[in-house]
């Protein structure tokens, strides 16, 4: 067999022989990062809602203690998962769970990978969402309470939709980071893009060419995701115009202001 002599020759050969490996790896990377980001986002929302539950002078002691304890646990979770590299978390969780017998040979590694990315992203998201909640004017929450909404209702209906809009750029960042950083999960042999690229490169020992392909794939993924998120952001902003309707309850009162002194 004649081996290629040029860069593009090698790229062509690798794509021809191992195209399906790259494709599978890409799929797995997308699956892990997308699911991980979504679940991480949900974890972040939950943590942020729980951490902002208010207490009053009428709150009974056991509830106050419970809340303090919960806050402590959540803080530890955030500190631990933000304070250690994901590659280390992957090793500790994977081999720890293996030792404890929670996972065995039959367990699907992608599930473990999704779990790791989710829980890692959740820690970051919790802080991002907390920032988003702070960015929403306090009056919004007060108005929600003033018409009788509970903490949960005001969060879900009023505060979080605005907070999430404000932090969309950061959420996009997290997604992009996850696409790239899920590559560290190759240490637990999950068949994501980086892992598959290593396999593709190995046979002919053409690391440069194989990883050039990998780099381009990562770039395409992140670029596409960024574009899509920008579109979502524009969608969230809604239309910049509105239509003035005639009154639907009383035709006489259409587009009239109440009587004001000095205006006839």
């Amino acid at each position: 067999m004649n081996l290629p002599t040029s860069f593009f020759g090698w790229v062509g050969l690798l794509l021809d022989k191992y195209g399906s490996l790259f494709l599978q790896g890409t799929e797995m990377t997308l699956l892990i990062s997308l699911t991980g980001t979504v679940i991480g986002f949900l974890i972040g929302l939950l943590v942020a809602i729980l951490r902002t539950v208010p207490t009053s002078r009428r709150t009974v002691m056991p509830v106050k203690v419970l809340k303090k304890l919960l806050n402590l646990i959540l803080s530890i979770y955030i500190e631990v998962f933000r304070g250690t590299p994901m590659i280390v978390q992957a090793m500790v969780i994977y081999y720890g769970a293996m030792m404890a017998g929670i996972i065995g040979r039959g367990t699907s590694v992608p599930m473990v990978a999704i779990f790791i990315v989710s829980i890692n992203t959740g820690a970051y998201m919790a802080e991002i969402i907390r920032g988003g909640i702070i960015s929403v004017d306090k009056g919004q929450k007060e108005a929600a309470h003033a018409i009788g909404m509970t903490h949960w209702q005001s969060m879900v209906n009023v505060v979080l939709p605005q907070a999430v809009r404000n932090i969309m750029p950061s959420i996009g960042n997290e997604f992009v980071v996850n696409i790239k950083d899920s590559s560290v999960l190759n240490v637990i042999a999950v068949s994501e893009l980086f892992f598959m690229s290593k396999s593709a490169a190995g046979t002919y020992a053409r690391y440069f060419e194989a990883f050039a392909i990998t780099a381009v794939i990562y770039l395409i993924l992140t670029f596409t995701v960024t574009r899509i998120l920008r579109m979502v952001e524009r969608k969230m902003d809604g239309s910049s115009s509105y239509t003035i309707l005639g009154s639907q309850t009383d035709s006489k009162s259409a587009i009239t202001l109440p009587k004001v002194k000095g205006r006839t």
């Binding site: 509105y242 239509t243 003035i244 309707l245 009154s247 639907q248 309850t249 009162s253 259409a254 587009i255």
Partner: peptide
């Protein structure tokens, strides 16, 4: 309608 804002409902 009472406060004259029905036309702006959207």
């Amino acid at each position: 309608d009472k406060v004259g804002m029905a036309p702006y409902q959207n």
